[in-house]
Amino acid sequence: MKGFFKSSIGKKLIMSISGLFLILFLLFHLCMNAVVLFSECAYNSVCAFLGSNWYAVAGTVILAAGFLVHIVYAFVLTIQNRKARGTDRYDSQNLPKEVEFASKNMLVLGIIIFCGLITHFGQFWAKMMFADLIGCEEAESLSTNGAYWINYYFHECGALSIVLTVVYLIWFAALWLHLNHGFWSAFHTAGLSNKTWIPRLKCIAKWFSTIVCLGFAVIVIYAACGGIKVPQGCCKDKQAVECQQSTQTPCQQESNK
């Protein structure tokens, strides 16, 4: 395998494997989030189960590494490809319309996804796992109350909630496009496709990206419409007690003052 990862195909394989890893993560994340549609309490139990336990922290570190690799190679490959294209451009180029928009704009879509990710991290991860890790007492009572935070950001914050909902929907649209191409492309790069499987993989990619992105969008819209009720003592563990202590949102606390 000497020199394999320096070769063009080797680098592409890294892109493909890291992409597939991120896809698996997305699937897991969606399953976890979808619980909130059925039971806020159950969802909070999931949050509590993960919390800042060692396995969740380890998972986060591995995930961050996955993102880092994917992003670094995205830039390395894109820069190399621009160089390979040369400096002279065609006066006009009419690519056949069959060439997918997403396939030509993977980096831009990736950057949009990354911006969404930063927003998302600031909103949820910082308030939950991170707050727990640094032992911020004020935040601790809310650090595993995922339902509270979803409701807070998408429903309780007035105009900001509307803006956040729209931002998230744009984020999911970019993700949809990225996955629509990325999904089948990753298999192709890994050599796992042929004449029969290209159309099949493209079809699966459409279904997969639609299910994943629609799933996330439904959760956000559901929350924006006020569908999420922050648990009030419906669970019997320590977590429920913490939930009870904090049924007021910071927005409400603000108006109480």
Binding site: Q80, A84, L95, V99, S103, M106, H181
Partner: peptide, 9 residues
Amino acid sequence: FGNCTNTGA
């Protein structure tokens, strides 16, 4: 030469 990104053009 560049790295294929499967645009299919």
